[in-house]
Nucleic acid binder design. Sequence first.
DNA 1: CTCGTCAAATAGTACG
DNA 2: CGTACTATTTGACGAG
Length: 170
Amino acid sequence: MMRELDINQIPSNINEEEISMEEEEEEESSNNNNNNDNINGAPRKKLRLTKQQSFLLEESFRQNHTLNPKQKEALAMQLKLKARQVEVWFQNRRARSKLKQTEMECEYLKRWFGSLSEQNQRLKKEVEELRAMKVGPPTVLSPHSCHPLPASTLTMCPHCERVTRTNVRD
DNA sequence: CTCGTCAAATAGTACG
DNA sequence: CGTACTATTTGACGAG
């Protein structure tokens, strides 16, 4: 799972028998079998692309993620496939590289979330510590008695604009 | 065209 | 080894 982080990368070991430079013709002697014509009610085997076919498709995907009808036809000719098969291959290839991309973004976001949670935890702890350093709620000196009063018990008189006490004895 | 899905082919694994 | 299961890959197709 997730063994390749770079989508669109081409498989690193394409060697496996010669693949002669750029644009090649397939031929695997025993091969194909490509005929899907259902002679009789044949269960009909599913097509498997040869290494060279895959390679060529991969190459052209690398330079262009979509094909115009002309390119499609040419590729199909070259690969000895139907144009429809080339078309489908590209559709699948696009869909699957998009999926990989999305999975990678998902992983990235998960990591980001993780680090943010961590940071959040640290900050909360810091707030806690800072709060603990304070002796108590804020206080002010009473204008009347000159004694400290909890700020929460004071209000501003709307008329004279002087601080008065609410509701608590001085 | 994309998206979701199916199913064949194949790769990986567990076990006698 | 072989063989039985499970998981993954991938060609194909229908719906929208």
